[in-house]
Amino acid sequence: MSGSEIFLQQLIIGLSNGMIIALIALGYTMVYGIIELINFAHGDLFMLGCFAGLTLIGLLGLDQAVAGTSGTWIGLILLLLIVPIFCGGLNWLVDRLAYRHLRESTKLAPLVSAIGVSFIFMNIGLLWGGIPMKVFGFGRAAAAPKAFPELVSNANLLGQSAVEFTGKDVMVFVVTLPLMALLTWFVRRTRAGKAMRAVAQDRLAAQLMGIPVDRVIGQTFLIGGGLAGVASVVFAVYNNTIYFQMGYRAGIDAFTAAVLGGIGSLPGAVLGGLVIGLARAFCDQYLETRWTNVLVFAVLILVLVFRPSGLFGSRAKEKV
């Protein structure tokens, strides 16, 4: 591979992973925008989504399916429908059971609670891997990484080129871009979306207008969780391995992306996700893989300390 080919390759990898990070970051940023909670469990929700996806594959009998057959396409679409419902519902439920009661207390109480939820999710992920299904290796090594079958072909669309651009890369963009457009439309144009922004900007005024604030916050968790669910499917299909501790890392990457873009801002989260995805890819290539995490954390700390409103412009123009 020539230098420019390597660069191009890392660019593709970085953008694809960046889009996935962006989807998770959107869930962080929406929840933060509306109740100023760093939803620490969001990364682990994403992880559970991956496990739900693999379970579904087992139930559908798709674990040996060949990429590109009609079965895998239907399976992929089913996954993209069901896993987001699972994640969104779970996120909604956690808000209902845990965070809703802490709305009036100090800001750190819901954060501590979210850390607790993150641990619970992680533990569920560990136990989930022990389910005696074929896709989980009959549950014999619960903590071990699980292989996620190739639902989308890995064949290079660029033919003989050394640079690989596969169906998986296409899938990432085909799923995420329309979804982001849909989300933008929802938040900008629909009544529910406007109510979300209203609650984010002034909760008391929203209550006085007759907006049922708790329901709107619940919807935000639902949508944010749903996006994490889509990210789960896309990630698992793209990277083909999942394990129960992956939520922490993914969560940190996504949170860093959200902070980078100005937490509370939707376009900021997407931009931040791309930056983090690219930074990881280039650091892996041109520095050293083992320093990549340090790089992400350094970015996170430096932005929080020196530009807490994010790198791109003033604080959260379009909150929620």
Binding site: R191, K194, A195, R197, A198, Q201, D202, L204, A205, A206, L208, M209, I211, K317, E318, K319
Partner: peptide, 14 residues
């Protein structure tokens, strides 16, 4: 307590 980043029309809709 106008919603500062909603348009005038959106404020009315709320």
């Amino acid at each position: 307590r106008i919603f500062p980043r909603l348009s005038v029309r959106e404020n009315l809709e709320m």
